[in-house]
């Protein structure tokens, strides 16, 4: 379980995150939606222990990540945006050494690398240098590395970015399979993937959670208003697609959805 409680990040005068709270239960995949600069990546960095918040706490399986970062991170798998990988290593080397750096035993690690590669369809590219992989391949490798130690919580930053439709389908299937029994927080820029993989959605705007609901509820609540995209746009910008842009936002603000904290 991932618990984010009243997290505030204030790098300078302006807050990037302001008292953000979020709960991700086992088996849930929470899609974090928001426009660029809304604070998605900052929240994910806080959730994965890469950034210390100015206020608030993050608990991974009950362990406060600020108090015992190593123990909390041992239960957490993180996949960064654009899946950065060392370019010169092969897939196998990267996975193997990542496992070693995680503290996994050599013998166990061999099995895990083989099994992970098989499950993520990486068997044919195991000895290919990472810089020769396509985007989807790189994301699969990143996901394989994040899953290598069998974490309870997954934090994924935009896993669908730059993928073509076929690759997206493939990635969706992979995520559904691996996220089923874990607490997964996924930052997404593509709305079309939300219903395919997310059990819940949370909309972040200006460093605050603007709305959070289960995906069916979110869709049900917005069905009357039209498409999900329109509802999202309205949630993050306050603009109703059916109204002219120069109308004041205050009148167009959607009803606040229940915050799951």
């Amino acid at each position: 379980m991932l618990v984010i409680e009243r997290v505030t990040v204030r790098p300078r005068a302006r807050s990037v995150l302001s008292e953000v709270s979020l709960l991700v239960e086992p088996g849930e995949i929470v899609g974090l939606l928001g426009v660029a600069g809304s604070g998605k990546t900052a929240l994910l960095r806080v959730a994965s222990g890469l950034l210390e918040p100015d206020a608030g706490t993050v608990r991974v399986v009950g362990v406060d990540i600020q108090i015992d970062r190593a123990r909390a991170q041992s239960q957490l798998g993180y996949m960064a945006q654009n899946a950065p990988l060392p370019p010169d290593l092969s897939v196998r080397e990267y996975l193997w050494w990542t496992g070693r750096a995680r503290g996994l035993d050599r013998t166990d690690l061999d099995l895990r690398v083989s099994a992970g590669a098989k499950e993520l369809d990486l068997g044919s590219v195991l000895d290919v240098p990472l810089d020769r992989l396509a985007d989807v391949g790189r994301r699969r490798v990143s996901l394989a590395a994040a899953l290598l130690h069998d974490p309870v919580v997954l934090v994924l930053d935009d896993p669908f970015c730059g993928l073509d439709p076929v690759q997206k389908l493939s990635m969706r299937a992979v995520l559904r399979r691996f996220a089923a029994r874990r607490s997964t927080l996924v930052a997404m820029r593509s709305l079309e993937d939300v219903p395919a993989i997310c059990t819940h959605v949370a909309v972040i705007q200006g460093g605050r959670i603007a709305a959070a609901k289960t995906t069916p509820e979110a869709f049900a609540a917005t069905a009357a208003a039209g498409r999900f995209e329109d509802a999202f746009l309205k949630a993050v910008t306050g603009h109703d697609p059916g109204r002219p842009m120069d109308e004041p936002f205050d009148e167009a603000m959607p009803e606040q959805m229940e915050l799951r904290t």
């Binding site: 960095r45 890469l50 970062r69 991170q73 993180y78 654009n82």
Partner: peptide, 14 residues
């Protein structure tokens, strides 16, 4: 610069 160190740090490497 490319983020691989951030990934490593998120893997529990202090």
């Amino acid at each position: 610069a490319d983020g691989t160190l951030a990934v490593a740090m998120a893997q529990g490497l202090g």
